[in-house]
Computed example of a mutant assay.
Amino acid sequence: MKRTAQINGRLTISPPVSPYWTADDYAHETEALRTQVWPAVRKLLAEEFPGFSAAFTYADVVLCTHCCSEFECLTADEATDASTNQDEHSAEGEPACCAKAVDEFRVERGLPPVQWGGAA
Results as ranks from 00 to 15, higher is better:
85 N>Q: 09
76 A>S: 11
92 E>Q: 13
3 R>D: 06
90 S>D: 02
93 G>D: 03
34 R>M: 08
38 W>L: 06
22 T>C: 04
100 K>S: 12
10 R>M: 14
95 P>E: 05
119 A>Q: 09
49 F>K: 12
62 V>W: 10
48 E>N: 09
15 P>W: 06
97 C>S: 07
45 L>W: 03
34 R>D: 11
95 P>Q: 00
84 T>S: 13
95 P>D: 06
17 V>R: 07
114 V>S: 00
77 D>N: 10
71 F>H: 13
67 C>K: 05
25 D>I: 00
73 C>T: 05
77 D>K: 12
117 G>M: 04
92 E>H: 09
30 T>M: 14
21 W>C: 02
95 P>L: 00
112 P>K: 13
71 F>G: 02
98 C>Q: 02
16 P>C: 09
68 C>I: 03
61 V>Q: 09
43 K>L: 05
24 D>W: 01
10 R>S: 09
57 T>V: 11
1 M>K: 05
45 L>I: 14
42 R>D: 00
107 V>P: 02
10 R>K: 15
65 T>Q: 09
118 G>K: 06
57 T>A: 10
113 P>T: 01
34 R>S: 12
66 H>P: 01
20 Y>Q: 11
119 A>Y: 09
63 L>G: 03
105 F>Q: 01
9 G>A: 14
50 P>S: 04
86 Q>R: 10
12 T>N: 14
120 A>V: 08
44 L>G: 08
48 E>W: 13
7 I>Y: 14
62 V>C: 08
116 W>Q: 08
5 A>H: 15
51 G>E: 05
115 Q>L: 10
11 L>K: 08
101 A>M: 01
86 Q>I: 00
71 F>Q: 08
92 E>K: 07
13 I>L: 15
18 S>P: 06
99 A>S: 10
95 P>V: 00
45 L>Q: 03
57 T>P: 04
34 R>C: 00
69 S>T: 06
61 V>H: 01
120 A>K: 00
75 T>Y: 03
96 A>F: 00
81 D>H: 04
110 G>R: 06
102 V>C: 01
21 W>F: 07
116 W>M: 01
40 A>M: 12
116 W>Y: 12
37 V>F: 10
6 Q>V: 15
31 E>S: 13
81 D>T: 04
26 Y>D: 14
24 D>C: 08
17 V>D: 03
13 I>R: 12
10 R>C: 10
85 N>T: 07
93 G>V: 07
3 R>G: 13
93 G>H: 06
58 Y>E: 15
118 G>W: 05
5 A>G: 11
92 E>T: 06
11 L>F: 11
113 P>N: 02
3 R>Y: 12
62 V>L: 14
8 N>R: 11
66 H>R: 06
33 L>C: 14
95 P>G: 02
52 F>H: 08
73 C>N: 08
75 T>N: 06
43 K>D: 11
22 T>H: 03
42 R>V: 10
43 K>G: 03
52 F>M: 13
36 Q>D: 09
28 H>M: 12
79 A>E: 02
25 D>L: 02
37 V>W: 01
29 E>D: 06
107 V>E: 13
25 D>F: 05
28 H>T: 13
90 S>F: 00
51 G>V: 06
52 F>A: 11
31 E>A: 15
21 W>M: 01
81 D>E: 05
75 T>S: 15
41 V>F: 09
35 T>L: 12
8 N>T: 14
112 P>L: 03
100 K>A: 15
86 Q>H: 10
90 S>T: 01
101 A>E: 04
93 G>E: 03
